[in-house]
Amino acid sequence: MLATYLPVLLILLMTITFATANLVITRLLGPSRAGGSVKSMTYESGMNPVGTARKRFNVRFYLIAVVFLVFDVEIIFLYPWATTFANLEPGSQDSAIWLGRIMFFLATTVVAYLYGWRKGVFKFD
């Protein structure tokens, strides 16, 4: 069973080799001329950079990340449900229970989603 994942290991090794080889070969082949303070400066369209880029940024990105987590974890739960639900006998009692449970589960997420919408998480301006 685990042998079916051997090609994944193979491709992982191949891609890592490819990426590393590219990075090493370009370092070896390319010139490395001495750079002054201007060359090593951050490129900001030709102007001298003011301050650092390690700045505080909009909290909206944090909110997006949190809401993404909620939805992504939910989708992870939905995948096993979907594959099993499609294989249940349609219209049977089992099937109805499975459908009802997942509808309740989705309803909780919809409530969270509407709350987020009301709070303006999804509003960009």
Binding site: T26, R27, G30, G35, K39, S40, T42, T52
Partner: peptide
Amino acid sequence: FLKEDYTPAHVDKVLFTLAPALIV
């Protein structure tokens, strides 16, 4: 391949090298 592989002074060197590999 023949262009200069330049690392600017202010970058985080490890992550700067790692990022292109991590995307490909």
